[in-house]
């Protein structure tokens, strides 16, 4: 019904481990241009795996066996490895979970921020430098020169995450995967970083696939949601609709476990056993169906 192609369109995405078990069970989801799409689910649900699959960085032990991923209408599968890499490099970016490990300890911040611009997008060094300074100002870093010349260990965790956020937005990507970008940070810094991402997202009009296990964050930042359980999509809805009329018992259980959606510090409580039994049955059915279809 929408004429504009989705920013990201995943359909039937299935990934398996070497032992044949599925980590992603026919996942489909759509991210519209400029929207924040939240991906919620408990630990191990496969949230990061979806992000890695679309960014082309699945771990070697995980194999995508089915499904398609399209970036702004371009099927990644139709591209050769190099073209695919360039497309992902130009159109997407990643804000990682842990800013401590996501920066190379032996390289200065400046080059780490600008190398995509200069080496992949072919910007002249001068233009890339100016862009990096602009972006550092946008993430409220007051001493850009010091930060550009610094090594990662000379910056605090919050500062590093600001640097990574600035770098992610620098090339004006269409889609950013933010994989629990605040969980590794101090509680006091989490709110600031969340607000920063939301502000930049609005100003730049960038679509974000926002991975989180926190419904409070979902309510605050996203326009639509996909709820994931054991690599399976449980529910998919616009955010207001999800909170107003949750369809699946699992979603309702998650909400019951998070009394105040607005408190990002609250975390999930265990889900009731009746709901878990229902989920197990659904996973079982999905697996049986998949086995039937694939011999």
């Amino acid at each position: 019904m929408n004429a504009r192609p989705s920013c990201l369109s995943i359909s039937g995405l299935t990934a398996i481990l070497p032992n044949g078990s599925r980590v992603l069970r026919s996942v489909s989801l759509d991210v519209k241009p400029g929207e924040v799409h939240a991906l919620v689910g408990e630990s191990g649900a496969g949230k990061s795996m979806i992000g890695k699959a679309l960014l082309g960085v699945l771990p070697p032990s995980v194999r995508q066996v089915e499904g398609s991923i399209a970036l702004e209408g371009t099927e990644l599968e139709t591209l050769g490895a190099a073209a695919r890499r360039r497309l992902i490099g130009a159109r997407t970016a990643l804000i990682p979970q842990d800013p401590l490990t996501a920066l190379n300890p032996s390289r200065r911040i400046g080059p780490q921020m600008s190398d995509r611009l200069t080496h992949i997008l072919g910007w002249p060094a001068e233009r890339a430098r100016n862009r990096i300074r602009e972006m550092l100002a946008e993430v409220h870093i007051r001493e850009p020169d010091r930060v550009i010349a610094a090594y990662p260990h000379e910056l605090s965790g919050g500062m590093r995450q600001r640097v990574l956020i600035a770098a992610a937005f620098a090339a004006e990507p269409r889609l950013i995967v933010a994989d629990e970008p605040t969980t590794a940070l101090d509680v006091t810094v989490q709110k600031q970083i969340l607000r920063l991402i939301a502000d930049l997202q609005r100003q730049h009009g960038t679509a974000i696939l926002f991975v989180t296990h926190d419904l409070g964050v979902v309510a605050k930042i996203s326009q639509s949601v996909t709820v994931l359980y054991a690599g399976m999509v449980v529910e998919r809805a616009p955010t207001p609709a999800l909170f107003a009329t949750p369809q699946h018992a699992y979603t309702r259980a998650l909400m019951a476990a998070t009394p105040r959606y607005t408190d990002p510090a609250s975390s999930l409580q265990p889900v009731g056993s009746a709901v878990l039994a229902e989920l197990a049955l659904e996973v079982q059915n999905a697996d049986n169906e998949w086995k039937r279809a694939h011999g």
Binding site: T92, L94, P96, H119
Partner: peptide
């Protein structure tokens, strides 16, 4: 991994 996402071979 981040460098791969940036588009480096």
């Amino acid at each position: 991994v981040l460098a791969r996402v940036k588009g480096f071979s």
